[in-house]
Structure formats: C-alpha cells, structure tokens
C-alpha cells in the first residue's frame, strides 16, 4: 500500500505519487485522531446529510484520490456542475444537469460492464484485479435526487434508477465503483431496492433520527448512532459505516477549491503524459 505523504522534488515536479484506486482512500480522522482509510474497490458508498454537512467534501476527497490514481477512470454526474466540475479535465465523461446525457452515460456504462463480464468469463476469472487489462471506473454522482426525482418525466427517472441499480448490483466485480451523494435518500428519492445495495454508508448531520437511519440503516439511532446529534456548526463530521459494519464518527478531511484545482491539474497532466507515452 502506498503512503500518501508529501515528498516534493526541490525545484520541480514531485515524485510520482503512485496512488492506486486499489489502495484505501484517506477520508479523514476518527475521534481518536487516527486516520480513517476506506478501501473503495469492489465497494459502493452512499453519502447522505443536510446541505453543508460535508457530503461534497467527502465526495471530492474520493474523486481526488481516484483522479490521482492512474489505474482508475472517472465518470462524474453532477447536477450542480460546480461540486465535481473541477475534475472535468480528468474524467472520461462529465454529466451536468442533463438527464438524457445521464441516461446515455449509464447505458454506456452498462454496455462496458457487460463487455467486461464477457471478457472475465472467457478468461475464466471472477473479478478484476490490480494491473488488469481494464481499469476500474469511479462513478461519482453528486445530488442523485436531481436525476432520480427532480428533472425529466417519470419514465426517465425510473430508467435512471434502474440503470444505476444495475451498476451498483453488478458492477463491483468488474471494478465499477458507485459513490452517490444526496441529502435524504428516502424511498421517494431513490428506490429502497437501490439504496439497500450500498454496502457502505456515510451520514453527515441529518435533521432527524429517521433521516439518519435512512442513510445508515434501520435501528442505529435507537442505539445512539444518530447523525442528528452532530453539531450544525461543525461541518464535515459524520458517521461512517465501512469495514467492521459498525458506525464510526469521523471528520472528513477538507480540500479547498484551490487544492482541488491543483490536484485536478496535476492529475490531468499525469493522465495526458501517460496517454502520450502509451501512444
């Protein structure tokens, strides 16, 4: 596993960070001050919480890690455009507030997924691995409710939810990682059959215990694990369910706009260099 520490070369570019999407992603610290790293490969993550709670902070951290990982491709859907817009230059596809573009992209992803499974089947393998012939793809969706419950007609929304459910359900083994963020993933926003497929959850501050339970899973609030008690003046604090299956209080690391822009430029350059070398 690579260690994400700075080692700049004096007067020039830093050494290749060689971050990989197969490495755990640093998402912040826990209440003991220990770093929290979450492996995302073969996993899907659902992020929920009220506006300003820290959803986009976590999403940007994950996308930043994926952008710097040359073994990962990016597919970004952002109804607001600005939350993930800085990573446009690193992404294979960037979808703005356009439901038809979103649907077309998810259909392409579905075809890619089927092709990858066909390849693995012929190769006699069950899942992708590090240094495989194809790279994992991170599908990051900010404000999923925009596509699944706001724009378009009923059919397009259902198509969106159905395609996404298929990606979440089947995409794991071929390296398709779905990370979706929304304020309240209740059944009127995304079908419960889709919500329940997300193994890992992160709830930033929610306005009620019920909302917190919708993100984390039923029953956690009764045992005291409710993101409703997180202070509204302390954004970035949330409850994360990842390895171990037990909620963990974390504070997400913060990347400001300038840092995101720098990382995006650096990642885009590295990707372009790699493309040139490959050509």
């Amino acid at each position: 596993m690579s260690t994400l520490t700075a080692s700049p070369v004096p007067g020039g570019m830093p050494a290749d960070p060689s971050v990989s999407i197969f490495d755990p992603v640093h998402v912040g610290v826990d209440e003991f001050g220990h770093p929290v790293r979450v492996p995302l490969i073969y996993r899907n993550l659902l992020i929920g919480g009220e506006p300003g709670g820290g959803k986009s902070t976590l999403l940007n951290l994950i996308v930043a890690h994926a952008a710097l990982s040359l073994d990962c491709r990016l597919c970004l859907l952002d109804g607001k455009q600005v939350e993930l817009g800085q990573w446009k230059s690193c992404a294979d596809v960037f979808v703005g507030p356009d439901i038809m573009h979103a649907l077309a992209t998810l259909r392409r992803m579905q075809i890619v997924m089927d092709n990858r499974y066909a390849y693995l089947e012929v190769a006699g393998r069950r899942k992708t691995q590090r240094d495989d012939v194809f790279s994992p793809i991170l599908v990051a969706i900010d404000e999923i409710a925009y596509f699944s419950a706001t724009v378009g007609d009923k059919k397009t929304r259902e198509d969106f939810a159905g395609l996404l459910r298929d990606l979440v359900a089947r995409g794991r083994a071929v390296g398709i990682i779905v990370v979706a963020a929304t304020q309240r993933p209740s059944s009127d926003i995304i079908p419960t059959s889709l919500r329940d497929l997300f193994a890992w959850r992160c709830a930033f501050r929610c306005t009620t215990n019920v909302s917190s339970d919708i993100v984390l899973g039923h029953g956690w609030a009764d045992r005291g694990w409710s993101s409703n008690t997180i202070s509204p003046t302390n954004p970035g604090v949330g409850l994360l369910i990842a390895e171990g299956g037990i909620p963990q209080l974390i504070k997400a690391a913060y990347l400001d706009d300038a840092a995101c822009a720098r990382i995006a430029i650096h990642a885009a350059r590295m990707r372009a260099d790699r493309k040139e070398r490959a050509a």
């Binding site: 994400l4 700075a6 610290v29 951290l61 202070s231 604090v237």
Partner: peptide
Amino acid sequence: VDITRRDPLTGLVASPLSAWVAWMRDEDAP
C-alpha cells in the same frame, strides 16, 4: 458503550493529497 461528553473533532483536518500539490504555485490553478 461509548460515552461522549465533548467533541474532539472540531479542528480542520487536512488531506494528505494537498501535500502532493503543495509545490504548485497558486497561479497554476484557474
């Protein structure tokens, strides 16, 4: 049983990814 009587997560947490691009000048960012 975890008993909470104070919030230790009030400070800003820096991402180690920032350190990778610390060598870049601000002008490089749009």
